[in-house]
Simulated assay, not measured.
Amino acid sequence: MAEIPGWLTEDQARMLWDAVRRLGPGATVVEIGSHQGRSTIVLGHAARTVGARVVAVDAFVDGRLFGGAGTRDRFEANVKEAGLDDVVELVVGYSTELRRGWTRPFDLLYVDGKHDYWTYVDDLRWSAHLPPGGEILVHDCFSSVGVTAGTLVAVLLGDRYTYLDRSRSLARFTLRRPGLADRLRIVRQLPWFCGNVFLKVLLRLRLHAVAGWFGHRGPYDPF
């Protein structure tokens, strides 16, 4: 994983690994947003240990932030080099469009697609194909304005998802009606989210030294 560009940390990779390892033989993992395959490689190797499979969904849109066809080539090369051709299935397309016609059940959902509010909330609807108690992992959950807003609406104010825990910005949810304590756990993450927004503002203003005073290192957003 370390050799593939991306924002997934080692602790977050462990969280994905453990989630897949809780599945049984024949299970399916759906990943929305694969980029060059950093997280896909983790999911794929974990899936192999339990006899599961991974379906990677990505549109590989052209542009500086997405990479287009070149990113797809690197994704496929990375999966092949990892020896996961028989474990990982690539489905190319927009998650919001593919969801409407999707009929295949699966057992674990990992969301790391487009981070605007509307796309994220729509991506959560893929959970209709999960079994009761199925897990959903969301990257950049408390470091992206769009994703955090979607979490507040769909999870904090909703009755379908329960927040469990997180590794920095990677959050874990389950399909279960939340109680008051579950909702309060989300509220307790908001100061950390506000700190991330503050750091992003400093980085946009190129005040990297100031961001360093608050413990942030490097030119990239907190993830």
Rank of each mutant, 00 (worst) to 15 (best):
A47K: 05
D62W: 01
R72F: 02
L8K: 05
G179D: 13
G134Q: 10
R183Y: 08
P178Y: 11
D159G: 14
L202Q: 06
F60R: 05
H139G: 07
L205N: 06
V153E: 15
I4E: 02
L164A: 08
H139C: 10
D11C: 00
A52W: 03
Y120T: 08
T28D: 09
L170W: 01
L65G: 06
Y94A: 00
T96N: 10
G218C: 05
D11S: 11
T151A: 10
L8E: 05
G218D: 05
F106P: 02
V30L: 13
R14I: 08
T103A: 06
P25N: 08
M15F: 12
V210E: 01
E97G: 00
F106D: 03
C141I: 00
A209G: 13
K80Q: 12
T40P: 02
V88I: 13
T119A: 07
F193C: 04
F142T: 05
A46S: 09
V30C: 07
F223V: 06
G67A: 03
E76H: 03
S143L: 01
L190K: 06
S167C: 11
R53P: 00
G212H: 03
R204N: 13
S167Y: 01
V147G: 04
A56M: 04
W192L: 11
W118H: 11
L152Q: 11
R168D: 14
T162E: 15
V20T: 02
L84F: 07
L180V: 09
D165F: 00
A46W: 01
A154R: 13
P25M: 10
V153Q: 12
A82Y: 07
S34L: 01
G101I: 13
V145W: 03
W192S: 12
A59S: 15
R183C: 09
L90K: 08
R104S: 10
F173P: 04
G158V: 11
E10R: 11
L199V: 08
Q189M: 08
L199A: 07
V91T: 15
L109W: 01
T119V: 13
H216Y: 07
A69E: 15
R206V: 12
T103R: 14
F66A: 11
V92M: 00
G83P: 04
H35W: 15
S144E: 04
L130G: 11
F223M: 08
L184R: 15
V201E: 09
M1F: 10
R100L: 12
V138L: 12
H129N: 04
L203H: 10
S143T: 15
V121K: 08
E76G: 01
R104Y: 03
G26A: 06
L98Q: 11
D123I: 09
L202V: 15
G146L: 04
V145E: 13
F198P: 01
Q36I: 04
S95R: 05
F223C: 09
V61Y: 00
E31C: 07
R176F: 03
G6Q: 09
S144Q: 08
L152W: 13
T49A: 15
A82G: 03
A211H: 00
E3W: 04
D140W: 09
V91H: 05
G44D: 05
R22H: 09
P131I: 00
W192P: 00
A27N: 13
D112V: 00
E31M: 05
D165Y: 04
V147I: 11
G93H: 08
G33S: 06
L180A: 14
H139W: 08
L207V: 13
G44V: 02
L65C: 02
R64F: 04
